[in-house]
Design a protein around this nucleic acid. Structure first.
Lengths: 252, 252
DNA sequence: CTTGCGGTTGACGTAACGTCAAGCCGTACC
DNA sequence: GGTACGGCTTGACGTTACGTCAACCGCAAG
């Protein structure tokens, strides 16, 4: 049976001798014989095994997983499906990351009156870029840019009063919640109507029912938002969301 | 000036004490003082610096790059733009990888007469999935699936003769090349016409000029394809590509 | 006998910490 | 006064898949 030396194998497959020795060390591919001063020799079976290893490695699988596959301990199709899922997750993560980075660059190059400062006032300054990215995903670039324009067009004094206005709305809501008013009661819906009008002003356009509900979902689903609201009164995020959903369903 | 202990900082920022010590070790964030038995104390400046570090880390930047930024040695916007490019490259890499993995799964679950075996006959078996993925990117899912159907519909004998047919075409071309025929000469174009007809048969549809040129580009641009053709005669890939481009320009 | 070729075995480095293990300081308790 | 304990410290190793030296070894040619 023909055998091949290390150098021959490297020429045939493109891997380095160091890699071959590494594969030997971790037990994934051992030479068929080691004669004449430690020189490795690989046979046909080893070459075929190496081809399979390299194929799976090109797919991005880890060596320990590859070891299980070529040893027959793990069905290849199963491993690949799991790997495909992981790749998808990683792609989504990178997508979100790229959005956030892009938003951060825009903030760095833009001026101080960027949208997120008003939309997401009170949040950690460092997270604003993340929320701008989130907003662009949820409502689209056009909506965010329109809001930017609208806020920029407001008189200075009014713009600076935005956080206070939110604060007022939240306190009114908290009081009603304290009083035991249901979220769909007329009193709460009146405050929510004010909230809706204020959001419409900031967005530069009146949100659709879907968009408004999406905002409501953001308030409860995002930990930072939920924490901000719950700092005013416990459960306020959920309460506000319920009120907003009711408003979207009944009045939009 | 107020200072904070390790535990307080971990509560405020969510990082572990180990991380803080790591940041100290690599010199990216040093405590303002280390008194009373080595206990670390961080001041306001350090907290702000840490916030910035964590923000940049959320964006996926590496610590050595972050160090340059917070030390003012590297403009943040520049670093982020470069980072955004790297993210894009990584996303594309993952996209290609996911395509290849998906193609491999299809091959594992499909039967033995999959398209790539005929399209890419003679290539390393392990690379066929990559080429199926490449083909789906270049010509779309519909085209590859149509080809699959067409090849499957061929009589068994004919299907098995596909590699031989390619081989014949390649040898005829090599002979003409040897004889010094220009790629746009009538003799070469006649062979290319046969090639085109054969490809059309395999694809189940006649390729457009663009698709045929794309195939020609694949022959020369891909190392494995180029090597396959150049094994028949040196420079055959380039020669065939020139002939195909001429054919696409003149006859399609 | 020396040089050179072709290969070998360690051993360290990579990124960003997690995870022990061992030890030290101050305080409360006995 | 000893001691147990909490809070924190400094090493040091492990993680992934090798790259990159450094030191060495067997064999053949000059």
């Amino acid at each position: 049976m023909r055998t091949w030396t290390t150098t021959e194998v490297t020429r045939l497959t493109g891997v380095t001798s160091r890699t071959l020795r590494h594969y030997d060390a971790i037990g994934i591919l051992e030479p068929v014989a080691t004669g004449h001063g430690g020189l490795r020799r690989y046979g046909e079976a080893e070459l075929l095994r190496l081809q399979r290893i390299l194929l799976l490695k090109r797919l991005g699988l880890r060596l320990d997983v590859i070891a299980e596959i070529v040893d027959g301990a793990l069905p290849e199709a199963d491993a690949l499906k799991r790997h495909a899922e992981q790749l998808d997750e990683e792609r989504e993560r990178l997508d979100r990351l790229a959005d956030t980075v892009a938003a951060t660059i825009r903030q760095l190059e833009g001026d101080q009156t960027m949208t997120p400062e008003t939309w997401f006032d009170g949040l950690d300054a460092g997270k604003q870029a993340e929320y701008e990215a989130e907003a662009r995903r949820r409502w689209g670039d056009a909506a965010v840019d329109a809001s930017d324009t609208a806020v920029r067009a407001m008189p200075e004094a009014e713009r600076r009063a935005i956080p206070a206005k939110f604060d007022e709305l939240h306190r009114r809501l908290a009081a009603l919640k304290e009083a035991g008013e249901p979220a769909d009661s007329a009193a709460v819906q009146a405050v929510v109507a004010d909230h809706y009008a204020f959001i419409a002003k900031l967005w530069g356009t009146a949100p659709t029912a879907e968009a408004y509900s999406g905002l409501a979902a953001l308030y409860t689903d995002d930990p930072a938002f939920a924490a901000t609201y719950d700092a005013v009164a416990e459960g306020l995020a959920t309460y506000l969301r319920a009120g907003m959903d009711a408003y979207a369903a009944a009045s939009l």
